[in-house]
Design a protein around this nucleic acid. Structure first.
Lengths: 339, 339
DNA sequence: ATAGTAAATGTTAACGATAACATTTTAGCG
DNA sequence: CGCTAAAATGTTATCGTTAACATTTACTAT
């Protein structure tokens, strides 16, 4: 209730200057031991809380970083956030979290707001699905410190942290071909211009090509990253006459795979007997679904940690170079592939 | 790269005063149409971004609210955050998220930092497990606007948003007694001094009492809110001789139930045949585990939304009274109870 | 003592934006 | 044309803190 206590109040109460109070509270040298004592005690019992806003204005440093994610309910992201938190907690940074809800407009708006809040840097997994990077180009030109994670935009000179999407996608596809002998393999892909969408598609493609399998365009369906999309994609796929159906589907991520499973099950298919399905993420539900999901384990926590570490380096060292950080993902074989 | 553009830069470039620029950019009246035009254009192409920090210092309003949660990986909380986001996005507030990791020390630290960041209000689900509320008492005395959600601390004059924990817990226990005829029912409870722990315990107790069942203290084990705790509690329970074991266990939340299930399964029990188990939350995994979990569905999104709405009201209306908002939870009967 | 130096404290200005008040310009009207 | 009211613009001070420089006080060594 009582107005906020400021340095000035303490100074007046003690008959010293605000500067002395400031120095005492910030543990600077050049303050007499006794004065410091008096000030600390007074501050304590007046309930002083430093005003970081004022401090930030002077130092143009807010000890704050912005995090923009596309979808907070996809379990991958909270885990990433935990990794980020791990680092920021130790280094006394605060996180401003924004959920772009898979909408690039919201993402843009979020970034503008974060900039105007003077965050020291931004971690972002982009919802951008177009090939038009001009927004990011202009943001980066202003000197905003940015690290992409997971859904990265390469080639803009910003650092990126992600798993080896292409190799992993290739590996899981190889598994279907080599271990199970499938030749007819579909792909539910993400938007064409999102890195992880593209990379995972390319991995899938390379696996087929390396085994001399011709790609069937009817089997490449854009599902996006959500369950609903996977569900719809599967319905579309199963519109095909039985003879034209694939034996397996490589999905761009776990939620899409769950959606796909649901649709397939509803239409009377058994997984993996009638149709094998794989995912990508290894989120919390993956081992639990009726046909435990064979997927790529993405170390989300690690991704968050590394991205935060990199961003802090960029913030704290002037000349820190951009870097592409690739984290090794691992195959997680369960039953949905037929194993 | 180029230093940040401020009002002053624009003003100088145009030979007007900063005040005029400020007025133009804030859509105030009393600015000539042509001047406004010139200013807007200039601001645009100089890449001006308002500095909210400076604005906040003047207005002592940051358009920012702090959120403190005990555990970001418990799926309930990201869902709550989504609900909060829903409201704050519409009203142009930003979220500063902190994960207290079930540690009250971190929670305290988080709140102090949020206060020094001058957040306009705080939403918190407390990790406090002691009966010592002095920290919150002193925080509230300073006039900090606070709304508790889920894990509330009542009686401090702060608003609370939560589900009807006691009734729901009673209802799910009643279900075990009335529908399944169990008489021997254990409870894995949360810490004694956490509201939801206490309330859910009391609901359990009341159900037994109302049915004239004597409570067996050996069957009340503190598991805490995490899987690990549920796992350990179940191990302890199953140390009892077979004849002294219960027929069912009411767990304080879903993660504890999952842990309990795991331990029971490892020890060769079948669920629900050998032992029925119920949870509380209805998180994303509940329907998926091998014995789909009978639980209480907590509308997390709704909780977040209501809490955020209340906090904004408190922020925006001077005399807004504290309120206890109870949201109806519903039984979600699945198979783990024996159904 | 007494300059000379280090330590302690104080003063002023600044960070960027805006509120409150002050001045100038413009427009309207008899 | 001159006067007034309204509109447009400018000035100053402020928010809370700190950097940079200025002053005072205390202490050392001769």
């Amino acid at each position: 209730m009582g107005k906020k206590v400021t340095l000035k109040h303490i100074a007046e109460a003690l008959g010293v200057s605000t500067m002395t109070v400031s120095r005492a509270l910030n543990n600077r040298s050049n303050v007499d031991g006794k004065t410091r004592e008096r000030i600390l005690r007074k501050a304590e019992n007046m309930g002083y809380t430093p005003n970081r806003v004022a401090k930030s204005l002077v130092s143009s440093k807010t000890q704050t970083i912005g995090v923009v994610i596309p979808e907070i309910t996809h379990a991958f992201f909270p885990e990433v956030v935990r990794g980020i938190e791990e680092i920021t907690y130790q280094t006394d940074y605060q996180l401003i979290l924004t959920n772009a809800n898979e909408q690039f407009d919201r993402e843009k708006h979020a970034i503008q707001t974060l900039r105007s809040q003077q965050v020291d840097g931004i971690l972002i997994s982009s919802s951008l699905t177009e090939k038009d990077y001009s927004f990011y180009e202009s943001i980066l030109e202003t000197g905003t410190r940015l690290v992409f994670f997971d859904r990265c935009i390469h080639g803009l000179g910003a650092s990126c942290v992600h798993v080896n999407d292409r190799e992993s996608s290739e590996a899981i596809t190889n598994h279907l071909i080599e271990e199970h002998g499938y030749q007819k393999i579909a792909h539910f892909c993400g938007p064409r211009h999102v890195t992880i969408g593209k990379e995972r598609y390319l991995g899938y493609k390379r696996a087929l090509e390396n085994h001399g399998i011709v790609i069937n365009e009817d089997w490449i369906i854009e599902s996006g990253f959500k369950e609903e999309g996977g569900y719809n994609a599967m319905q579309k796929l199963l519109d095909l006459p039985v003879s034209a159906r694939p034996e397996a589907v490589v999905c761009v991520n776990d939620p899409a795979a769950f959606g796909a499973m649901e649709a397939a099950t509803e239409l009377g298919l058994k997984i993996p007997e009638d149709l094998a399905i794989t995912g990508f993420s290894d989120e919390i539900r993956a081992p639990l679904v009726s046909a435990p999901l064979t997927t790529v384990h993405q170390p989300a926590y690690e991704v968050g940690k590394r991205a935060a570490e990199k961003l802090l380096k960029i913030i704290e060292n002037e000349g820190e170079p951009a870097e592409d950080i690739e984290i090794e993902a691992t195959l997680k074989i369960r039953r949905s592939c037929g194993c």
